[in-house]
């Protein structure tokens, strides 16, 4: 179930070829907590920030044409992330915000190079749980337990139909 109000998709100069070059969208979801498993829904507490919820979401992507296939074939080496300075720029506005750019392949290797220094990396999202939820969804689909519903509404800001292919 998708909540329209807080879902935001930006299409302006963000996508080159088939993948976003900068953060391009957030999706808000509504669900019934009582039906959920604690495997996919965890209470978390960030030191210095507060409490939050960590949610594993499985989203099926129907491969309806070649464009869609190209979009899902994007590799870690093609996905880029900025390295942002949280020590000087973010709190004080001094120096430069972006100190480098790395790929997800580099991030997942365990260390990246910034200004000739090797820096260890970690992730806040769990690849293990992401794969697990994806396999769970795949199983549901194969067993016929996950069925498509009628088209509800376009994602706000997202180009749809013919417009998207231009």
């Amino acid at each position: 179930m998708e909540s329209k109000q807080n879902t935001k998709i930006s299409n302006e100069n963000l996508r080159q070829q088939y993948w976003p070059q900068t953060p391009a969208g957030t999706i808000a979801l509504i669900g019934d907590l009582r039906q959920m498993s604690s495997e996919w829904l965890r209470a978390v507490s960030y030191t210095g920030y507060g409490v939050s919820l960590s949610v594993a979401v499985g989203i099926p992507i129907p491969i309806i044409d070649e464009d869609m296939l190209s979009s899902v074939c994007v590799t870690d080496a093609q996905l880029k992330a900025p390295v942002v300075d949280y020590s000087e720029f973010y709190p004080f506005g001094q120096g430069e915000a972006k100190v480098g750019e790395v790929t997800y392949k580099e991030l997942k290797s365990g260390s990246i190079h910034i200004k000739n220094q090797e820096v260890p990396t970690g992730s806040f999202s769990s690849y293990r749980l992401a794969r697990k939820v994806a396999h769970h969804l795949k199983q549901l689909i194969q067993d016929g337990g996950f069925l498509l519903t009628q088209f509800q509404a376009p994602l706000p800001g997202a180009a749809v139909g013919k417009e998207a292919t231009e």
Binding site: S109, G110, V119, G122, S123, F124, S126, L129
Partner: peptide, 26 residues
């Protein structure tokens, strides 16, 4: 049972007591 294998702890461990298998992400 609480660990999701996210690896946020890894760069903070000074002695590499925490490690991850990068194929299973555990």
């Amino acid at each position: 049972d609480r660990c999701t294998g996210c690896t946020a702890c890894l760069p903070h461990c000074p002695t590499q007591a925490l490690d991850v298998d990068r194929s299973s992400w555990s």
